[in-house]
């Protein structure tokens, strides 16, 4: 009996173009499984962004529009509202990196949450700008070395990183906000449940749902995939705690 198979919502014959050991693949697989389990593949419209997350449409068998850098939540708002104006309730989600969601697009992200826009945003937080070769981003941890913070992130030059899931949780229109990681099986299961919950909350029309996925970037961190997961487990989860920060249905 087959107990594991490729999620149906992943395109046949497609191969992820991410680097070896990159958590983007894991995250996309989870999103695809959730789409399968909720049986929403035919009703879902995905919004891709700029950065490593851009090729979403090459991997997922759902309708997809690319958005300009940072504007995914605004584009998703347009998609969702336009369908609603025709009495079609579609499931709309964005798949963005932390640079896209929390730096260049922070305005669009926060305001979508404040409006309680009934969409889901998935944000891959790998603490740097991965596509361009690992520069300092909004989520780069204090002391972390990147190509534009050669002596480590410091207060004097760079200031502090953003705790995205915590900020989104503060918005009244947010129905669900959580941070998850993918460094072991237990966390992968948990991440999938959280992503599922986010989509379910959208289905129920509860408002903005958000999952920040603490992810590895082995290439730019210059660590092996395994050591990258160790770094997340031992260091980054101390900076970015794994937690549900807001859940309107559970206190």
């Amino acid at each position: 009996m087959q107990v594991y198979a490729k999620p149906k919502s992943i395109k046949e014959n497609s191969s992820f173009t991410f680097c070896s050991g990159c958590d983007h693949g894991l995250a996309l697989k989870l999103v695809a499984s959730v789409i399968d389990e909720l049986d929403i593949q035919q009703d879902t419209i995905a919004v891709a962004s700029s950065g490593c997350s851009v090729f979403l449409y090459n991997f997922l068998e759902v309708d997809c529009i690319e958005s300009p850098h940072g504007r995914a939540c605004a584009v998703a708002t347009g998609v969702k509202r336009a369908h609603k104006a025709r009495n079609n309730d579609k499931i709309v989600f964005t798949y963005q990196g932390d640079g896209d969601f929390a730096s260049i697009g922070l305005g669009e992200s926060i305001h979508s949450a404040l409006r309680g826009e009934n969409i889901t945003a998935i944000c891959i937080n790998n603490t740097n700008y991965g596509m361009t070769g690992g520069q300092l981003g909004p989520t780069t941890a204090m002391g972390q070395i990147t190509t534009t913070s050669p002596t480590g992130r410091n207060r004097e030059y760079h200031g502090f990183p953003i705790k995205t899931a915590e900020h989104i949780a503060l918005c009244e229109g947010t129905a669900f906000s959580a941070r998850v990681a993918l460094y072991d099986i237990k966390n992968i299961y948990n991440a999938k449940n959280m992503i599922k919950k986010a989509f379910e909350y959208q289905k129920k029309g509860l408002g903005f749902s958000f999952v920040e996925i603490l992810s590895s970037c082995p290439t730019n961190w210059k660590l092996s995939p395994s050591d990258s997961h160790k770094k997340i487990k031992e260091e980054l989860t101390k900076v970015y705690p794994l937690k549900v920060f807001k859940d309107v249905l559970n206190g």
């Binding site: 009996m1 087959q2 107990v3 594991y4 198979a5 490729k6 992943i10 191969s15 992820f16 991410f18 050991g21 990159c22 958590d23 983007h24 693949g25 894991l26 697989k29 099986i185 992968i188 299961y189 995939p225």
Partner: peptide
């Protein structure tokens, strides 16, 4: 199926029990 769960590239295409 933990290996398949962990594979970021869906290179483990099936697990049979």
């Amino acid at each position: 199926a933990m290996c398949a769960m962990m594979c970021p590239d869906i290179a483990i295409t099936g697990v049979y029990k």
